[in-house]
Design a protein around this nucleic acid. Structure first.
Lengths: 352, 352
DNA sequence: CTGAAAGCGCTAACAG
DNA sequence: CTGTTAGCGCTTTCAG
């Protein structure tokens, strides 16, 4: 492996100094057209390759941004990452990707790792509450901006999320309007903000209709997204609910076939709703009523917000809400198509 | 922003030289136990943070590996990336992720970018044929190993893929055995190796059964994974086929509801098969017969192979085939469960 | 086992 | 518009 071609080689071959070469390469305006042309041509000829390490060492800017997600192989996350990549790649940044696997320990070490890697910015999905201090302590001191997606509002960072509370409230109201008076709520956990927010929305919506929010009808099962076993706990409910609101489409799609096989008529005897607009929702029969939003858009928003904050460190921290919509399909009994009108309705920013 | 804590600060505070600190930090054995202890303690105390750029500049090793995929928001790709991340993260490497969006130009620039970023290794999904030379020229000269997934076999790089040809051959034989004699094949294109291989498998299987491979029954439609419009071209076929083999589950899942709505009884009048074991395949009615394999495993294989090649640059280049299985469900008419026996059956390597 | 010294390739003052 | 100089923080000989 022969020695790297450096700006000094170009300088020598062009009879200028290394700084001039550096300036030409960085397209600084303060350089003669002709000199630049010669330098660029020679660089090409010699097969010069910019060395980002030397540059980063000098400037302490990396052009790298970190992305920490629980799992990439989750359709929502994958789309969001796609959105982030698109924006960041367009802005000349590289993406460091790391999974936290929903494990607090891994999340902490991922944050540490990104910090060590000296990323120019960080986007974290589903940050555990306990990591709040890490993020704040580690990053804010160094003035490295952080965007947190789908977590509770953190100080010192940008927060982005759809309005899980409001969406769940609306869905519950929808089921109520469809005539349901005994609605069960199924969720994998109540610790993650996205799920606890949905549960609050559910409870408050019922409360506002003077329906007692009976916690017996809140089924919490960590495995409800991977295993249909949890469905039997629904059959234990007394009275048998006239609707189930699944906090996740994945769980709904797992449960519906089981419910059908047990003779539960959907939507006649039981209305069903999900959350997330999984692609399976239009395959299943009956098609699934759900809450839709654009993960791609969330990713893009997160990315553009991060870029803004990088460029303007004085930018106010805020909680940004991305639009959602109620998608009514057959599983909730009344098929009423509606335009995806709120789709691009981002509060606060209008990143065209 | 106060100055960074460097090894010199630690050296000064510990009354040793910077080289000793460097050695202690890197856990070199040639250092007194006690000295090391003191150094590590002081590093912790001062909040020292290793600077990878200075290190990379010196050693020209980066501990970064590049991953180029067409689109992250594709369930198959997302799972594979998850597998790669898991392995690489465990081995102390960071992941650079970039999308090529199936565009030759972007793919080339992503490769360039990874090359400039001086990754220690590269994994590319669905490499366009035309990029072959880029990969070879750019990377092999620099001795940076490359793993190519789902492409035609390239020289100078490691190749990994499932056996698309064989899998398609088997599926076609399965449909034949189920009594079908007029089978249509639907594919988004015949340029990507994964699809052209599947088509060859389809054709050869028919050929071996002395059924003329009539190209009229090969429906190529770029949009068949995003829009069900292509289904009408199936109704134009004469004679009307008694089976359709979709080269992609996504297309099958889009088409089945349309076929059903037009009164085509599946599987009675028409058998249907897909490829990829999309999660929708067990939601749809009838459930979809398909080819299953583990994208996670493919990702892990790609990663371990890359690590091996990094550690041993003399390693022979090869084409590695990952196991697949025929998953027979209702859509092909005979429900015959079968253990996922080939799942961990990787040829050549047994990365436990 | 430890230290001194040199340099990886680039950029940012500061002069001219 | 261009050159000189001095590092960024780490690793690696080579000596001791």
């Amino acid at each position: 492996m022969t020695r790297q071609v450096t700006i000094y080689d170009i300088a020598e071959a062009t009879d200028v100094s290394a700084s001039t070469v550096s300036r030409a390469l960085r397209k600084e305006p303060t350089i003669a057209r002709e000199t630049r042309r010669r330098i660029l041509a020679k660089a090409e000829e010699l097969g010069y390759r910019f060395n980002p390490f030397a540059s980063s060492l000098r400037t302490s800017r990396t052009q790298n941004i970190g992305v920490i997600v629980p799992k990439v192989d989750n359709p929502y996350v994958a789309s969001a990452v796609a959105g982030i990549e698109k924006v960041m790649s367009g802005a000349g940044y590289n993406l460091f990707l790391q999974q936290s696997l929903g494990c607090e320990h891994k999340e902490k070490s991922a944050i540490d790792n990104m910090y060590r890697a000296r990323v120019d910015g960080l986007i974290v999905f589903g940050l555990q509450n306990s990591s709040d201090e890490n993020i704040g302590r580690i990053f804010s001191r160094k003035q490295t901006p952080v965007v947190v997606v789908d977590s509770v509002a953190h100080a010192h960072v940008q927060n982005i999320s759809i309005d899980h509370y409001k969406a769940a409230y609306e869905m519950t109201s929808h089921l109520y309007q469809a005539g349901c008076r005994c609605i069960a709520f199924v969720t994998p956990n109540i610790s993650q903000p996205i799920f606890s927010d949905r549960l609050r929305g559910f409870n408050d919506s019922l409360g506002d209709k003077c329906l007692p929010a009976n916690q017996k009808f809140v089924v919490v099962n960590e495995k409800c997204e991977t295993n249909a076993d949890f469905v039997k706990s629904i059959f234990d409910l007394d009275p048998f609910p006239d609707a189930i609101f699944f906090a996740s489409d994945t769980a709904a799609l797992l449960a519906i076939p089981v419910l059908k096989s047990k003779g539960v008529k959907i939507p006649e005897a039981m209305r069903v709703a999900g959350f997330g607009n999984d692609s399976g929702g239009i395959i299943i029969e009956p098609q699934l009523t759900t809450i839709g939003f654009s993960p791609l858009e969330i990713g893009q928003s997160a990315a553009t917000t991060l870029l803004r904050t990088i460029d303007n460190p004085q930018l106010q921290f805020s909680k940004q809400l991305v639009g959602h919509e109620l998608i009514v399909r057959q599983s909730s009994g009344c098929f009423k198509p509606k335009a995806f009108q709120d789709r691009l309705n981002i509060k606060q920013f209008s990143n065209a």
